[in-house]
Amino acid sequence: MHSLAQEIKAFSKNNLKKQCTRVTTLTGKRIIETWKDSRMHVVVETDGRADGACGYVQDLSLDLQVGEIRPWLLLASQDVAQDLETLKKYKVSRILNVGYGVENAFPDVFLYKSISILDLPETDITLYFQECFTFIDQAKMQGDVVLVHCNAGVSRAASVVIGYLIYTEGLSFNDAFSLVKTARPVICPNPGFMEQLKKYQPNHIVEIHTATNS
């Protein structure tokens, strides 16, 4: 049975430290989501790094931009998940936390589901899809608003939402990615997640396609 512990064990500590996802925001700020001291950090990239190494500079700015994918499905960073005013503004009642090391800030206020996913190209994110999709579907059926977030809200959470649109609405990868990118422009799934999403074909969609052509 797949477990996060097994997944972590498969990677060396050095590899985890070196992994970083770079994003350039609309304001031109370069953001890096990276491992440092065995924890995930969101930092601003420094200039003048000819060797391509990640620079570590503490980023104290908040990312409170919320991507409205559907009226009942939102995508954001951990900053939004920890900002009660913003959560209430968007009438959030459920929160899907797919970050690593991100605590649920308001357990007495919202219904949470936490699934720790490593933001590594080698991580098979599709293994987590069904559990995530079930939680999102429950929100939709009960008339709730669900927020999906990870640490930076650019890779894991975005990949889950893109996969959800492919799975539930039968969208192509390009259409699903474009829709999510429009709602939250800073999304940038890591290269491994991008390849998995491009190849992702839910069984029920494959079955429908086969039946149509038989």
Rank of each mutant, 00 (worst) to 15 (best):
K199D: 03
P185K: 05
I187A: 08
L179N: 12
K181A: 11
I187D: 02
A176W: 03
K199V: 03
P191T: 11
A176V: 10
P185F: 14
T182S: 12
L197Y: 07
K181L: 13
N190W: 11
A183G: 05
K181Q: 15
K198E: 10
A176I: 10
D175K: 13
T182M: 13
V180P: 02
N190S: 12
T182H: 13
C188K: 14
F177P: 01
G192D: 09
N203V: 13
M194L: 15
C188D: 01
K199H: 10
K199Q: 14
P191W: 07
S178E: 11
N190C: 12
K198G: 03
I187Y: 00
L179C: 12
L197D: 00
T182F: 11
K198N: 01
E195C: 09
H204I: 11
T182N: 11
F177E: 00
M194V: 15
L197W: 06
I187L: 06
N190D: 09
P191I: 06
V180T: 05
M194I: 11
L179Y: 06
P185R: 05
G192W: 04
Q201G: 07
L197G: 00
P185H: 10
D175A: 15
S178F: 02
P191R: 02
D175S: 14
N203M: 13
G192N: 08
P202V: 11
R184T: 15
S178G: 13
P185I: 13
P189Y: 00
P189M: 03
D175G: 04
K181C: 08
L179R: 15
R184V: 14
P202Q: 05
P189H: 04
G192A: 07
L179H: 14
H204W: 15
P189S: 05
G192P: 01
V186M: 12
I187K: 01
Y200P: 01
I187H: 00
S178W: 00
M194Y: 08
D175R: 14
K198R: 13
I187S: 04
